[in-house]
Design a protein around this nucleic acid. Sequence first.
DNA 1: TTAAGTGCAAAAGTTTTGCACCAAG
DNA 2: CTTGGTGCAAAACTTTTGCACTTAA
Lengths: 167, 167
Amino acid sequence: MYTSDSLKAELHAKGWRLTPQREVILQVFQNLPKGKHLSADDLYELLEKRGEGISLSTIYRTLKLMTRMGIVRELELAEVHKHYELNRTAPNHHHHIVCAQCNRTIEFDNKTVLKQAINQVEKSGLELIDCQLTIYAVCPEAISEGFPAIISDNWACSRAKKSEGKL
Amino acid sequence: MYTSDSLKAELHAKGWRLTPQREVILQVFQNLPKGKHLSADDLYELLEKRGEGISLSTIYRTLKLMTRMGIVRELELAEVHKHYELNRTAPNHHHHIVCAQCNRTIEFDNKTVLKQAINQVEKSGLELIDCQLTIYAVCPEAISEGFPAIISDNWACSRAKKSEGKL
DNA sequence: TTAAGTGCAAAAGTTTTGCACCAAG
DNA sequence: CTTGGTGCAAAACTTTTGCACTTAA
């Protein structure tokens, strides 16, 4: 678990600095409910509303930095742009299933996959930062609509969020 | 393995059409060396050079369609934008390790992960289209440079491709 | 014939950057 | 002090769309 202090220490080790902006962003991710992830813009608006506005450029720069440091994980699910969440170690580590038809996302845990990733990385002499198994699949609703036969171009199942289900 | 004919059949089943553009794009992916993936723009330029120019809009539309049909897989590795490759079934199915420092990508196979994905998807009542284990790690070169301590903002290991290694 | 698909150009987003100013260490 | 970080505004890209024209079936 990352604290402000460990973030500070790690930044200092690289000659970087702990700024209020970086602390705030770290805290936002730590207080995020499990399973929720934010895009750069989500984060920007959330802070704007809290009256702790941070510029979009700084948010982009910080997310990139924290991803590279292994503090957050960059998710590329079905959304148009990247989303971020805290890079938690087991047992909070998880993976995602995304419906290729409606973009709905389901989280799941799987210890075996993590073990495989650890093996794989050791075998190649690297050091693990994060592993994400992303499964693309078709959800029951889409199957019952007749997939793959008769799904129309812009069909989305009832549970799909607005604007996310369209092709 | 997809052929022009099976593509045609599947498109027809949905009331869609097989166009020369869709055929060409499918062929490009089928002739792509294993391990190579293309961005929308890569594909556009490649076809441009071959004198079979297809408009960028059509390329974007086709990639989205083929992803949703499960014919190609959308990769989000370290590059700025999405890359695509043919969605091959076992034994050609594979996963990726990406170095968080230099963005170099390594492919690997792992049958266990695929099995886990199949289980997971069945458990949830979905139908599998693709599964991708993406591992973020730090490569030996970066470790020998002292990671995580002293890697500079824009360091990239010697093997990193131009312009991909910078933060 | 006729609905789907394409190309073009314009629009809409997202992400990055240069630069002057600010502030952590 | 010194150098890294921030904010702003502009630039650079990527992706999507409206529309008139083609074309597969």
